Amino acid sequence: MTYLGEGWDSRAELVDGWVERRPRRPEAVPQLLRESVVMPWLAPQLPLPVPVPVVISEEPLAVRHELVPGDELTTFNAAQGRQLGEFLRALHAVPIAQAEQRGVGRMTLPVQRFRDEVRVPGGEALLARIDGLPADTLVHGDLGPEHVLGSDGVLTGVIDFGDLHVGDAAIDLAWALNSTPPEFADALAETYGVTGELRERVLIWHQLGPWHEVLYGNDIGDPQVAAEGLQGVRDRLRIGVSPG
């Protein structure tokens, strides 16, 4: 058994050549169960390898899937940007009715908690912009460098579909267009077909990202996590791009 890592929702270990994941908190149990239903259907429709988990234990819950090759992205190039653009075009073209039949729901933002727990200048104006954003696309929901894998200058897979939901396509472009080098971001935007209106929504989701970190820090009783999230909120509201 080899420890692979853990995120907000699950812990992963390599067991007998398989990735074994277990929920870290009760809220993550339905997510893992939903992945075991949705991913066997979704995976063949995508141009990059993704996890296809199978439940091996219901109490306590554990799932296993083949190891998706590659490592977290630390270097970026145009070829990777084009690959991710193609991946997102395929994902966002999946019929949402079929996804909903398999248990995929729609995002519900904790807006009142944002108002109560994240009090910063300009925050209310950002929250007001959330109203009216579309929710008509199947999205990964948590796309970042730790979930996009690569090797030898190409992408090799995308992991962690626990936040898969029907929402705004712009959420999947937030990190990719605002926190990556221009060579990568420009190639992705061209391949995907990013419009000016879509970029405006992308920025909203990019600015909103650290708000979740504040709430997570509060939920687990970790003031440092909450403080780092709050600094991210301030930085992104001030300059509209990732602080680094």
Rank of each mutant, 00 (worst) to 15 (best):
P95R: 10
H140R: 01
S179T: 05
L164Q: 08
D163T: 14
V166D: 10
D163K: 05
M107I: 12
D116R: 15
F161I: 06
E190P: 01
G141P: 12
D131Y: 00
P121G: 14
S151D: 15
G153L: 13
L164E: 07
A99S: 11
V104E: 04
D142S: 09
L138P: 01
D152G: 14
R119E: 11
A170S: 08
P110T: 00
G144A: 12
Q101R: 15
A170L: 07
I130C: 01
T191F: 08
L143Y: 01
Q101F: 05
L109Y: 15
E100L: 04
I171Q: 15
Q112C: 03
L149D: 03
D160K: 09
A93H: 08
A125I: 10
L126P: 00
A170R: 12
D152Q: 15
I130P: 01
G162R: 02
R115G: 02
L138V: 02
V158F: 11
S179N: 14
D160M: 03
G103M: 11
V154P: 03
T180H: 07
N178C: 10
I159T: 14
F114C: 05
D131G: 15
A176H: 00
H165G: 03
L188D: 05
A170T: 10
V118F: 05
T108I: 09
L126M: 13
E146K: 12
P181N: 05
G105Y: 08
L188M: 11
A169W: 00
E124Y: 03
A185G: 07
S151P: 00
L127P: 00
R115K: 15
L127G: 04
A125K: 13
P110R: 08
P182D: 07
P182C: 04
M107N: 12
